[in-house]
């Protein structure tokens, strides 16, 4: 592999790792558009290597979340079944879809995620699930308030069925699927947001593995790109999690919402093959 290309991919993955970690995203949301737009890589190959990046990012962030006792492994084991099923459907569908259509779908989903992120920021959505109760009480340690929070999980069956949708998007687009898993857990199953993010991050490891295996089997993972992506994402995520506390998240999210919307439009335009004056 050309050393210059190696450095470019490493830098892109590093930035994807930092942004992903700062905004609580998997990294695939930056990596896939960057590889297709900046490096002119076919979207199927970009999605293939993105799975590896997401897998590394998920494992790396899970280390922190498990250590802080925020991951609900019982909940994860239940939802993973639906998510993995969805991921298989999504990955095989992606292999059947034309790259232009896939690019347009990616753009639309990216647009939705960025608008949703902006809306959440505006609402300053606070955790309102600490009071939900059922017979099966669970707890997690909240570092910010220094207390143990008790919560319950409700509507497990509905959550499992809905996690299929998250899995489909994860497998289809090489994303983690957290943008769907977190709202399912938080809004429908009434899981506290911090637990939902930690559990989603843990689950993403399995959904991205399934996607990676399917894409690998079909020859869409370029092994030469794996090294820079692993190193970039891993060290980017580590730095992102360390500088997380010192950064004004509101300004950061505002800026990246605009960047993501621009990327989304580029992906849609690429997908629809619209000739626009050198956007």
């Amino acid at each position: 592999m050309d050393i210059l290309l190696f450095v470019y991919i490493l830098s892109t993955s590093f930035i994807a790792g930092i942004i992903g970690s700062l905004l609580g995203l998997g990294g695939g949301i930056i990596l896939v558009p960057a590889l297709t737009i900046l490096f002119d890589m076919p979207i199927h190959e970009a999605i293939g290597v993105s799975f590896i990046g997401v897998l590394v990012n998920s494992s790396s962030s899970s280390l922190v979340y498990i250590k802080n006792r925020m991951t609900d492994m019982r909940l994860s084991s239940i939802l993973e079944l639906g998510a993995v099923t969805g991921s298989i459907i999504g990955a095989y569908t992606a292999l059947l879809i034309d790259s232009n259509i896939l690019s347009a779908i990616f753009g639309i989903v990216l647009g939705y995620i960025s608008i949703d992120m902006y809306r959440k920021l505006k609402k300053n959505s606070e955790d309102n699930n600490k009071e939900s109760r059922s017979d099966d009480e669970r707890e997690y340690y909240d570092e910010s308030t220094n207390e143990i929070i008790t919560y319950s999980v409700i509507r497990e069956k509905e959550g499992t069925v809905l996690s299929v949708i998250g899995g489909i998007f994860a497998g289809l687009l090489g994303l983690g699927g957290g943008a769907i898993f977190v709202p399912i857990m938080n809004r429908i199953m009434k899981v506290p947001i911090k637990v939902a993010i930690a559990t989603s991050s843990f689950m993403i490891g399995v959904t991205s593995l399934v996607g990676a295996l399917i894409f690998f089997n079909n020859g869409f993972i370029d092994v030469a790109l794996v090294s820079p992506i692993i190193l970039g994402i891993f060290f980017g995520a580590q730095i992102g999690s360390r500088i997380n506390k010192g950064i004004d998240k509101q300004i950061l999210t505002n800026i990246f919402c605009l960047v993501l919307i621009y990327i989304a439009l580029r992906m849609i335009i690429n997908g629809l093959e619209i000739e626009v004056l050198n956007l």
Binding site: M73, R74, S77, I78, E80, L81, V84, T85, I88, V206, L209, V210, L213, I214, N217
Partner: peptide, 17 residues
């Protein structure tokens, strides 16, 4: 339930492998 669910996930992964 959790054990069976995780076993099914592992089965799917091993099937793909």
């Amino acid at each position: 339930i959790n054990a069976v669910s995780e076993l099914a996930v592992l089965g799917i992964i091993l099937g793909l492998v």
